[in-house]
Every structure is written in C-alpha cells, then in structure tokens.
Amino acid sequence: MSHVAHSTNSKPAAEPGVKITTSATIFLLAGLALLVVAPLFFYPIFLMKLLCFALFACAFNLLLGYTGLLSFGHATFFGGAAYFTAHAAKVWGWTPELAVLLGVVGAALLGLVMGFVAIRRQGIYFAMITLALSQMFFFFCLQAGFTQGEDGIQQVPRGYLLGFIDLSVSTNMYYFVLGVFVIGLVIIWRFINSPFGMILKSIRENEARATSLGYSVAHYKLGAFVMSAALAGLAGGVKSLVFQFATLTDVAWQMSGEVILMTLLGGIGTLIGPIFGAGLVVTLQNYLATSDFPVTIITGVVFMVCVLLFRRGIIGEFYASRVGRWLGFEHRH
C-alpha cells in the first residue's frame, strides 16, 4: 500500500521537525511572536477560529501525513468533542479546562471505536468506512436529546479558567486558545519524533515490511487514530467555547472534507503546512461570508487544482524550492 503523499511523482518535503535547523527555529519563534501580538491587529474571534482549525488540521495530518491513513470522518471527533464540551460547560457547569478535557476524552473514545472498525481495511476502503461511520454519528447527533437537534447547543458559557480567569474577556480567551494550540503542536511534534512515530512512518512507507519486522501494524494504526482523534477533539472542544455553540455543522461530512482540504493545501506530511492551509481556508471563508458566492464551488475547484498540479501543498513546495533548500529545509531524494 503506497501512501498518498509518497507516490511516484509527488515526494513531499523532508520533515524539518526531526532535526531542527537554525532557520526553522527562527521561523518558529517569529511565528510564535506574531501570534502573541496578533490580537492587536486582527479580530480575536477570527484568530481563535484560525487557531482551532489549524490544530484540527495538524491533528488530521498526524494520521494522513505520518501514518498514511486518509480519514474521511474527522468531523466526528471535532464536532463530537464540541458537543461534549458545550454540554459539560453549559448543563453541568464544569470549568472550561475540565469541559475541554471531557471533549478530548470523548473524542478519543469515539476514535477508539471508529478506528477499531476502520483499520480492518486499507486505503480507499478506509476512507469510505470512516466516512460512513461519521455519517452514522451525524444521524446520532441529529436524534440524540443532549445535542438539541437542529438548534445545537447554544449560548455555552466560556466560564472561568481554573476558576478565576474570566474567559468572557476576549484577550484572556485568545491566550487560552493560543496556549492550547501550542500545547497541541508540541504534543504532535513529540509524538511524530518518538519511536512510536517512527514506526508509524515505516508503516506509511511500507506496511508489509513493517509487519514482517514484527510490528503489530494494527495496534500502531489504532494508536495513531486515537491520538489524532483526541487532538481533533481538543480543537473542537475549544472551538465550542470560542463560538459558544456546538451544532450539526461541526459533525457533518463537509467538515471532514474541509480539514482534508486544509491539509492538502498546506502540505501533507509537513508539520506546519496544515496551519497555513487552515489559515488560507478560514480567511477565504471569512472573505466570502459576506458575498453570496458559495464557498463550496471554490473549495471544490481548489481541491481539484491541488490534486492535479499542487500535491506537495504550499509548505511542501516551499521546502522543495531553491529558497527552501538554501534555508536548510532539505528535500528528500
């Protein structure tokens, strides 16, 4: 089973995360500094939305980019966690950090169940199975009582972080989201550079060989699936606090498609690619929200163009370019 980002004529960029170069460190610090001062220049809700989706895309990429599994059902974890967090914060009155934690745990459990069924098949089948199971969860959310059906859970209180930081203050909320985002990224970075992550990459490159070396491929895949689901849940839970609602939009298949697009656009299998992909997609959506031109058409066309001409994504192309190589982002082969 070859892998989506590693086929004959689409070699992705080498992963700079393994060996952090000087230029990568500089970029990283500059990016972080920008995010810290960003609320001075941009609308905080927009930035928080961006960070949530960026984390969601990174979590998704953990599975597609590093394990070679294309999940078409990640909306389940994102939207499911949004529901759990919203319910815990609103109905049970939990503090935000506990509510988000519940979302993460819930998403991980959903990931365990979906992963257990889906890893029985590979490649295209895996994609179709995750899509079907995710649609099943959608119908569940449509009918279950606690999700409030078509209305969704509205007016979720942001509450007080650790009991004393008022998150209804926009600035506080922003730095909370930024903190969660950074923690999420650090977890992902640690994960893919751990021995576990190395084995995942070997599965992506050659599943049969990984099996023959004695690795229980199914267990590793399931582990990666649960990890990715939990992190997607982290993004979804925080998102429900940012917008103060959780609705069916978050669990619909279009959401799964969106996160695939973000990852593809930014660069499959690059650590920071999905962040840029998410940034572009969210900006585009914000821009088009005021016009009556449907986002779907643009999303669809961008999808087709990316697949046909631009499979490395923005960051992948940058790594492979002359400037990228000069800066030390080596391109494999």
């Binding site: 989506v4 004959t8 004529n9 294309l70 643009i298 669809g300 999808f303």
Partner: peptide
C-alpha cells in the same frame, strides 16, 4: 500513476464543484 486516494480526493472536489454550481 499516483496513489488511489488522489482519485478519491479529485472526484470529491469535482462533486463539491458540481453541487455548489
């Protein structure tokens, strides 16, 4: 010539484009 998943992604984009239009 590529991984079959690209075919899935391409036709997904095609579906979105047609339906959106």
């Amino acid at each position: 010539k590529l991984d079959h998943l690209y075919g899935l992604l391409f036709t997904f984009g095609l579906a979105l484009t047609i339906e959106g239009t």
